[in-house]
Design a binder for these strands. Structure first.
Lengths: 138, 138
DNA sequence: CCTTGACCTTCCAATGATGGGAAGGTCCAT
DNA sequence: ATGGACCTTCCCATCATTGGAAGGTCAAGG
């Protein structure tokens, strides 16, 4: 009687999407690249997800929100599932990702510094003279 | 006698690429999307570039190195060529770009902060316990 | 004259993560 | 039975760039 309400938490892709904050489009995509196992299907071909699947999707979503690339997330998922993992591996992956983020941040900060300097020296009025264009023109 | 050496600075795409630090591939691509005018051609169909073209390519290269997207560079090139431009327009484009860069920087910095915090609390040894995975798993 | 190697050409495809949309099938309530 | 809200697969677009295949051109040297 309460089988549908409390036990069988199977849901269609739209519900799994809302529960995990991962779009249905991306859920299908993750399955297609093997990041998620192939979902169960109804007789009509609809994908079905359970709580475990949603848990995995949330894991992916959180990892994406921290900027991890999907290939790294693939490894993180394997480590998460592996009870004999070493935390050193996870930490290593994370710190490499941090290093990559910091590299990109530094790159962008250099751009910002240069641009602010150039813009600071630009009148920004109706006159055509512009140190920004002068810089770009070499 | 010195026509080839000093006056006719026409060169093939490979030379233009080296002179501008823009790859031949990208020069062709920029032409195909209309960022560069169609290059002159030899009878055999080889593209030919002169100093003005190389100047434009360097402009693009420099703008790319400051992170400007190609569509913005299209506008910057038009302003560069327009003697009646207002420096205000250039400054506006630049500051919008700076704002976008700063937005991305802040986003990445938040990721770095979180990841460093998590990694700091991770033993990073052979044990499986890992606050990073705990966080991702929610 | 012919070969070799370094150029050049166009066209197609991949990257990484995501979104948009078409064409068509399914499910459920009215 | 009809409509609307789902679902399916498939293709395409983004952004800037690179890689490669298949083939043409050019200059130097044997």
């Amino acid at each position: 009687m309460n089988q549908d309400m409390t036990i069988g938490r199977e849901m269609t892709i739209g519900h799994a999407a809302k529960s995990s904050a991962v779009s249905a489009k991306m859920i299908r995509h993750y399955e297609s690249i093997g990041l998620l196992p192939k979902a169960q299907r109804t007789e009509a071909g609809y994908r079905l997800y359970d709580d475990t699947d949603v848990h995995t999707l949330r894991f992916i979503q959180r990892a994406r929100s921290l900027g991890f690339p999907l290939e790294t997330i693939r490894t993180l998922l394997a480590l998460w599932r592996n009870r004999r993992r070493s935390s050193a591996q996870v930490k290593e992956l994370s710190l490499r990702h941090v290093a990559e983020l910091e590299r990109k941040i530094a790159e962008m900060q250099a751009m910002v510094r240069t641009l602010k300097h150039l813009a600071h020296n630009c009148h920004g009025d109706e006159r055509p003279d512009c140190p920004i264009l002068d810089d770009l023109a070499g």
